[in-house]
Design a binder for these strands. Sequence first.
DNA 1: CGCATTTGACCCGT
DNA 2: ACGGGTCAAATGCG
Length: 320
Amino acid sequence: MEKAFYLPENVTGDQMRAREVLSDGREFADQLRVMLSSQRFGDVDHTLSAGDLVSKILDSFEKSLLILQLPSSLADEVSQVPVNSGGLKSEELDSGPSPKMVKDRRGCFRRRRTSEADTKVSSTPVEDGHAWRKYGQKSILNAKHPRHYYRCTHKFEQGCLATKQVQKTEEDPSPMYRTTYYGRHTCKPNYTDHNQFYLDSMDQRDSSSKSILLNFRQNTPNFSPLNDTYKDHSTSIGNYNFVTSDHILTTFGSSSTKTELLSPAGSDHGDVISSGMYSCSTSTTPDQTTSFDDQLDMMVAGVVNFEDDGDDLAMDSFLL
DNA sequence: CGCATTTGACCCGT
DNA sequence: ACGGGTCAAATGCG
């Protein structure tokens, strides 16, 4: 089934709001470019303020994308709200946990409807660097093994609605694990998590540890930042910057894992944008000092394109 | 003792 | 009615 990314009619208000937010992002990116052109990397204080700007840019993108995807994403979120979130629930909260009333509320959640799902199949259970808490297990019809249900550990602290399902499939040569992710991680993992994941993915060095780069740029065919120089050093994890060798990588956006993005489920623009991480990598070597500024230009240009032509996002993705 | 997992109940969509 | 997703009490574990 194909998911409509955006329906222009009846959403002019959202469109205008998205433009406003994207304009903010463009302004922040511009400020960042000015900042970076006046100073080079290596200054700790400067890096911190640049990080603030990156966060603001990120926030603008996140908000605008959320606005533009409101029809579907909102429906998904609403579908996960307890049915009895009205009078009955508040009544119980006021009177304390009465076992019988609590029992009556069991399972009173609407089932998730058709939301975006990313599926990954691997020979071992996926280690995606996120903290999951198991909340259920079901035997599935015509399946030899039960399905396991996980939610983000930070669901209640940070309202993160990401969930995943893991099912062992009976393949002939060896058992495979099918992991299906629902929703995006809106939580902020701590540095320890990130560092551990970073180390893990660097250790594994297999196909699942490849990074994906979503580069905001115009359709300029002469620009190819992903030459061999970049391939071995760029790793993107969550919202933080990582320097590997002589490269600095700035990662935008939150995502559950990189490998999720490689699944067929993210084949259209809407899915990729909604579930992906948006990153921009560059080098700090002297002969490539213009790269970061160029890419910031392209990131801004991508926003401009978006505003000029809402249907054509003019964004390309690359595998590193 | 606090947190995670297990497991049967409960509810929703088809 | 049934299958699947989620809740929450019971249980396990460090």
